[in-house]
């Protein structure tokens, strides 16, 4: 793996200096959501000039979809999926097999627009007229992994909700045909959950650690950082 060209070891990344601006179009979209859904809009986050995240209550998920499609005029459906915020108990798998494994981190820290639960479903749609896109998020409690279907909002969400069920175990109520999409019928488990292990990495250690040899010019040992 060649080193990044022209990179100094302790150079800083070039910062883009930006004065925080008010993104009026996106603020207007947030105001629209608050007007339609009221308290169901829990939080929002705007990166000015770039993107918009809105978190809504799970009970208002389908209504939020209608607001997104009709009031915010985001007619172009993007995708629907989920994030599992539990840090992976298995790590990157590049730790040395001889050292003690690091302490697993179990704290759930969520991202933009906050969140209280381990699973969050997020979806995105774009408005061609306003040339902006909106990412909607909602929390899914651990004891009730269900969600209203968006099938009446966007017809194309069909397969996305099937994938959601298969990869995370979150069921879209009202969908009606949540058959597995990718995996053979006998597959057990929900692969994209963080506690689903990739067994090949457990059975065999990542060979990159084992085979690092010093370059002929370097008399010393191999790179300490595990980049090959």
């Amino acid at each position: 793996m060649s080193p990044l060209s022209s990179a100094d070891t302790d150079a800083e990344a070039t910062e883009a200096v930006e004065t925080p601006e008010v993104d009026e179009a996106r603020e207007a979209v947030v105001a629209l959501f608050r007007e339609e859904l009221g308290d169901a809009v829990l939080d929002h986050h705007i990166r000015p000039g770039d993107d918009l995240w809105i978190r809504v209550e799970r009970a208002a998920w389908r209504q939020a979809g209608f607001v997104l499609r009709d009031r915010a005029r985001c007619k172009a459906f993007g995708f629907l999926s989920a994030i599992d915020w539990l840090p992976s108990p298995y790590g990157l798998g590049e730790d040395s097999p001889t050292d003690a494994p690091p302490e697993p981190d179990t704290e759930i820290v969520t991202g933009y627009a906050g969140g209280d639960t381990r699973f969050q479903v997020f979806a995105r749609a774009t408005s061609h007229s306003a040339k902006l896109g909106v990412t909607l998020k909602t929390d899914i409690p651990d004891d009730d992994l269900t969600l209203d279907t968006w099938l009446s909002v966007y017809a194309g969400v069909d397969w996305h909700e099937r994938e959601l069920r298969e990869m995370f175990g979150i069921t879209a109520i009202g969908h009606g045909h949540l058959a597995p999409l990718y995996l053979p019928g006998e597959f057990e488990g929900h692969p994209l959950r963080k506690d689903f292990p990739l067994l090949a990495r457990h059975v065999k250690a990542w060979p990159g650690i084992v085979d690092v040899e010093p370059m002929p010019a370097e008399a010393g040992g191999a790179d300490e950082e595990a980049s090959e």
Binding site: P191, L198, L199
Partner: peptide, 13 residues
């Protein structure tokens, strides 16, 4: 041998 997906859950090695 499974190639770049050697650790995937759905790939035959």
């Amino acid at each position: 041998c499974g190639g770049p997906y050697w650790d995937s859950y759905s790939v035959t090695k």
